[in-house]
């Protein structure tokens, strides 16, 4: 692609890695060469860098696409997902999934009849990234009993959710209840009442 096609959110390939343009500025002295000043984010590692291109230069568009998938099962060294549109299956390595493994549910979340939609990023048709929803609802499978009469705020206790993640929850949360978790911070957001 020509540099003049650069825009915010354009995806380009640099040194064999896909990058997304996060900030974009075009500057040009009236009779001089235009400069395209970009901040770019590595779509795999998240690393950020600055690059300036001059008008007339060419660069590679990155062959990346994001597919909506549902989670099927864990294997010995990876996690298998299925494309919700084509039913094609793909295994993501444990390394790639990382701590997001705590937010993988193979069944529809409580209160819903649809499986959770995960966004899997493909680069040259190879899975390179996983985006989990910003919040998920999980069951508390283990937690210490609450202490009666303690009404002070900001007092928490340890709990474990169904996928094995340990989180701090308010004292009033009981085993078997459902809570909403922020997947970025891996922290408790609120109690969710599920009509059973």
């Amino acid at each position: 692609m020509d540099v003049s096609e650069l825009r915010k959110n354009a995806k380009v390939e640099l040194d064999g890695h896909p990058y997304v343009v996060t900030e974009f500025q075009f500057v040009k002295p009236g009779k001089g060469q235009g400069l395209y000043k970009c901040k770019l984010k590595n779509m795999i590692t998240g690393a950020v860098l600055d690059r300036t291109w001059r008008s007339g230069e060419r660069l590679e568009a990155a062959n990346v696409d994001s597919r909506t998938m549902q989670y099927l099962f864990a294997g010995s060294d990876g996690f298998t997902f299925m494309d919700s549109a084509t039913y094609e299956q793909v295994e993501l390595s444990a390394e790639l999934v990382g701590d997001d493994k705590y937010f993988l549910l193979d069944a529809p979340p409580p209160g819903s009849d649809q499986p959770i939609a995960y966004a899997v990023l493909f680069y040259n048709n190879r899975p390179v990234g996983l985006d989990v929803p910003s919040h998920v609802v999980m069951e508390v499978t283990e937690c210490e009993p609450g202490v009666k009469g303690d009404t002070a705020t900001n007092v928490t206790k340890g709990a474990t959710i169904q996928t094995g993640l340990d989180v701090q929850v308010p004292l009033f949360i009981k085993q078997g209840e459902f809570i909403k978790i922020d997947t970025r911070s891996k922290s408790y957001v609120e109690r969710v009442n599920i009509g059973k």
Binding site: V27, P29, K31, G32, Q33, L35, R54
Partner: peptide, 13 residues
């Protein structure tokens, strides 16, 4: 022209 374009951005601006 190459010098002027670069100088405008790095020095003049």
């Amino acid at each position: 022209t190459a010098f002027f374009s670069a100088w405008c951005d790095a020095c003049l601006d």
